[in-house]
């Protein structure tokens, strides 16, 4: 198996642990690659890549639309909706679009065919290029409840693009993260050297094991002295792929939205080595997975 086409998801149990730092720099170090920002509630990878936007599409979901003149007021749709997205007001269904999960059940159930579906925009997907890196960004509209449809859209198009794909996940371990890692070949967990960092590492550690994904850990902001996240890895036999130091030059580059790999030899070497380690792990895991 070659490096091409592998999908590597970068995740962490909390924000600010270093997902974007790592995924942006791995993609930049990989050269020809795809970077996908799945943190659709607050995407920031594009601030580093500053891509020329070549394509921009609305992402839509289906929501029910009731034609009241056809509705007999039987209430079947309202009683069916497990998400409580339909209310029964003055003998007619009333739709709460932002609560709807687009299951389509109400439409199928309606004996009068009074319910149709219409598209509702929930956000955007953008695609652009930064040097050799294709940069894809999802943006969830303010006030929308779930970014899952946008993440689905971002990931469906790059199943066989032939280049390594780096998926910058949203923080945490909820639905949007599950959607982001669903088709990943390998997961990198990023953790800070604090008790809180180790706790959050535990959350994503549980998640990738639940999804039976091969994984490794990158320890970020490493200092001299004890590292609770590293202790967690030792206790749970989690492979440590590499360490990123707590470094003022790296902090400065990041705060100015510059990509360390492209601007610093020292960090270019660090992330290139990390990429090599990751790719070796991915190949190894893919091989052992085929044997299983």
């Amino acid at each position: 198996m070659k490096n091409s086409g592998v999908r590597i998801a970068v995740l962490s149990g909390k924000g600010g642990a270093g997902k974007t730092l790592l995924s942006v720099n791995l993609a930049a170090a990989a050269g020809k690659s795809v970077y996908i920002d799945c943190d659709v509630e607050e995407p920031n990878g594009h601030l580093f890549f500053k891509p020329q936007i070549a394509r921009e599409n609305d992402v839509t979901v289906k929501v029910p639309f009731v034609t009241e003149s056809l509705c007999s007021g039987c209430r079947k749709c309202v009683d069916f909706c497990k998400f409580n997205a339909l209310a029964f007001i003055k003998s007619k269904p009333y739709v709460f679009e932002e609560v709807c999960h687009s299951c389509g059940g109400c439409m199928l159930l309606c004996p009068q065919n009074a319910i149709a579906e219409r598209n509702k925009a929930v956000g955007k997907e953008l695609e652009g290029v930064s040097q050799n890196v294709t940069v894809k960004t999802g943006i969830l509209n303010t006030g929308e409840a779930s970014g899952v449809p946008i993440i689905k859209k971002l990931l469906e198009a790059c199943c066989d693009c032939g280049e390594p794909v780096f998926i910058d996940c949203p923080p945490g371990s909820a639905c949007i993260v599950m959607e982001s890692i669903r088709d990943a070949d390998y997961c990198i967990l990023v953790a800070e050297p604090t008790v809180f960092g180790a706790h959050n590492l535990g959350m994503v550690f549980d998640l990738v094991r639940l999804f039976k994904k091969p994984y490794g850990v990158v320890l970020n902001k490493c200092l001299e002295g004890e590292n609770p996240a590293e202790q967690f890895c030792a206790e749970h036999k989690a492979r440590v792929l590499g360490r990123i130091p707590f470094d003022s030059e790296l902090g400065m580059l990041s705060s100015e939205a510059r990509i360390a790999v492209r601007e610093s030899e020292r960090f270019g070497a660090l992330f290139s080595n990390l990429l090599k380690t990751v790719m070796k792990e991915v190949r190894h895991e893919a091989a052992s997975y085929t044997q299983r």
Binding site: N84, A85, F88, F96
Partner: peptide
């Protein structure tokens, strides 16, 4: 989700 909607109903 939608507990308020259901309760109001």
């Amino acid at each position: 989700g939608g507990a308020g909607i259901r309760a109001a109903q």
